[in-house]
Design a protein around this nucleic acid. Sequence first.
DNA 1: TAAGATAAGAGGGACAT
DNA 2: ATGTCAGTCTTATCTTA
Length: 299
Amino acid sequence: MSQQIQNKEKCSRCGKNNLVTESGELFCSSCGFVIAEKISDSGPERMFSDTSVNKSRTGDRTSLTRHDQGLSTIINPLNKDASGKPLSALMKASLNQLRKLNSRSSVNPSVDRNLQQALSELLKMKEKLSLSDAVAEKAAYIYRKALERKLVRGRSISALIASSLYAACRESGIPRTLKEVSSAINITKKDLSACYRLILKELDLKMPVVDSVSCIAKIASIANLSEKTKRYAIKFLKKAEQEQILAGKDPMGMAGSALYLASIMTDEHITQKDIAMAAGTTEVTIRNRCKNLRSLNVS
DNA sequence: TAAGATAAGAGGGACAT
DNA sequence: ATGTCAGTCTTATCTTA
């Protein structure tokens, strides 16, 4: 899902004409300079089943705040996914079930109430985590599927909607950690991850592994690191990928360590503590990952 | 003060029972 | 369904340069 979209502007650092947007960040594919984060995705993201097709992307809120007026807007009848590709037969089938659920829920006060509460929580989280509408839409969609599977029974709405949002982030390749999401809605990381795994299992979702390279941009901007350092860090990660030492490791930890080692090479002194803070992990983890990474020869 | 080392504890996956 | 096992990450504490 992480398609790159070319942009016409020039990079303000290297001047080249290679700006792309990916994972909600606008950056230069030549030098890696990040021009803006959290920009709204310019790709196709919604289709409308009603007649008002020409709504501006940046205009009014649409389906998210209209849960009480008509759920049908969120599931378009075209059987296309967010990027406009046709859906698989399996997806079509589940969409049909979902439409049935929607038509039923308008006369089912309990489901309706649940949705209202979940969506208002979702909006809060979306603001706190600075996420795009597209991700929120995706999260709402996942949540409805979870509702349909009766996954709320015995679980808190907060946990379920939070894990839906986390899943949406993962699917979109936007780096948000379990920790960030869980603290945005005041549930424990443990609950969130348990709920997230349940959703993956029950809904049979397949998530891409978090790309540690995309974590680099995030950490580096928090820690104020130079482009040069970032480039070295990416080299480290590429090498690490070849050597297959990335598997099973926390991507934020890997990215943080790569940046740390890179910052030594570029004489850009940053402490392990600061890196760990920026990466949302601990110094110990940074050190352990560094041990793995040090055996690699990157020049 | 920063970095390295060590140990205890938690949570989750794989696998067997 | 439940238990065990190996591997990972986190937290806390101590040592080293």
